[in-house]
Design a protein around this nucleic acid. Structure first.
Length: 203
DNA sequence: AGCACGATTAACT
DNA sequence: GTTAATCGTGCTC
């Protein structure tokens, strides 16, 4: 029985709720040959509005950030450090710029293909970072703006698992070195504890 | 037109 | 722990 795709209403909620509830969801890429590569989301971060000085929308609406102002459930994919793609899903109601950055997956499907894309690295490092998971699932600028909730989307989320509060930790978002407080330290990062992640591999 | 820097990664010492 | 790689973006001149 096929798992249910996560509908747009899930993303049309407060970004912190979406970031927390996305832990345990399955991010799925349908490959050109129809096969799937996928993994369970185990780490996310929330970026919320123009006042959030860690959010790209702090500069207002620009060509790059326009997607964040659009309807929820769409992909906000951007290029950074001259070489890496990072994947977010747009949240909240249309007109309010916010998104959840997916920072790590535990790969569960299409492992040979993922191994090929992450050639030379051990399985543990296949998708344990925001740019790594984009490599693993071949997420690039071509996916920017894509609707992840349409029936024929080749990239989407599925309901898969849920984690109890004791399996989740929070902390400051990563990489905001020059961002002023309180935004730099506000605990908008959500992580599935390592023990709980280990259980995913076997089940 | 020029510039500083980034929601990172991998390879170093 | 430190640092190079590498280029689009937004800001200043």
């Amino acid at each position: 029985m096929a798992a249910r795709r996560i509908p747009r209403a899930f993303f049309a909620r407060p970004t912190l709720e979406v970031a927390r509830d996305l832990l345990g969801a399955r991010l799925v890429r349908v490959e050109a040959d129809g096969s799937r590569t996928a993994g369970i989301v185990v780490e996310t971060e929330a970026y919320i509005g123009e006042r959030d000085q860690g959010c790209h929308a702090r500069a207002g609406r620009t060509p790059r950030t326009a997607v964040m102002y659009g309807p929820p459930g769409h992909a906000y994919v951007y290029f950074t450090y001259g070489m890496h793609w990072l994947f977010n899903v747009v949240t909240e109601e249309e007109g309010f710029p916010a998104a959840v950055l997916v920072r790590a997956l535990v790969p569960t499907e299409g492992l040979p293909r993922i191994a090929q894309r992450r050639r030379g690295r051990p399985p543990r490092e296949w998708a344990n970072g925001p740019a790594k998971l984009c490599q693993a699932l071949d997420i690039t600028g071509l996916d920017h703006g894509r609707d992840l909730c349409s029936a024929d989307a080749p990239l989407f989320f599925e309901f898969a698992r849920s984690f109890p509060p004791e399996s989740v930790t929070t902390g400051a978002r990563v990489g905001l070195n020059t961002v002023p407080e309180p935004w730099k330290s506000i605990p908008w990062r959500f992580i599935v504890r390592p023990e709980a992640q280990a259980a995913l591999a076997s089940g």
